[in-house]
Amino acid sequence: MLRVENLNVWFGFPPDRVDAVQSVSFQVPQGQSYGLVGESGSGKSTILRAITGLIDTWSGDIRVADQAVAGRKRSRAFHKAVQMVFQDPYASLHPRHSVDRVLSETLHLQGMHDIDRRIAQLLDAVGLGSGFRFRYPHQLSGGQRQRVAIARALAAEPRLLLLDEPTSALDVSVQAEILNLLADLRRERGLTYVMVSHDLSVVAHMCDRLAVMRQGRIVEEMDAASLRAGRAQSEYARELLTASASYDRGWSGA
């Protein structure tokens, strides 16, 4: 579904050029869920932004469903196939647009018909219901906003969903709801996920495989089972695992 080969992303020009991502390669088969983990500045979100064309200073080969993409421009078909959910639901909804406006504009842009019926369906699919249709962002909680953002991403009926820390701005109980929703949607619609997160347990819960990143490079690729068992090959991944777990030890064994 997604194939990234030798991806480099940089910002600025020499001598101030910053290489945010360096020769990163990975592939995600149809229907799988792939995690990118790492600390802040490791370049994990930058990869998503390069795939979607929000950043155009990259080189390498990105293929979605065997179609190569280039530069900043993306085709209509690309926008239909690939969508993204952002980290902060407080920043990803236009403050003056109602839910109705957000979804109808999106459906219109994606060339959909029967917009009223589809809005109702989308709101049901993300567990909000049509009662929420005419609300503005300030009338929604963080979790509800993220549901709207997910509904917006689903409007085009994409096959690949890029999730950029979708729950890190939310409370844990709301995180559980959103993660369950994402898992259900993936099963029902056969979606492929690429999920960026700094939280190893969230990635272990959501993903089949994952890559550990550090300073723009993939340090190690492993599957979720190895992550749970603490079987990391590289030293950095092991360190990251211990650091994440060290404040669990006290009571998880009890």
């Binding site: 844990v172 109980s173 995180q175 559980a176 709801e177 993660l179 369950n180 898992a183 190893l200 347990s201 969230v202 272990a204 819960h205 959501m206 992550l227 749970r228 994440s244 777990a245 669990d248 998880s252």
Partner: peptide, 20 residues
């Protein structure tokens, strides 16, 4: 209890997270 259960955990895989 609900808060504790809603956390995904490395040492205890679950199919669905408990919702508060």
């Amino acid at each position: 209890q609900g808060l504790l259960n809603s956390l995904p955990r490395l040492d205890r895989p679950v199919d669905r997270l408990a919702v508060l």
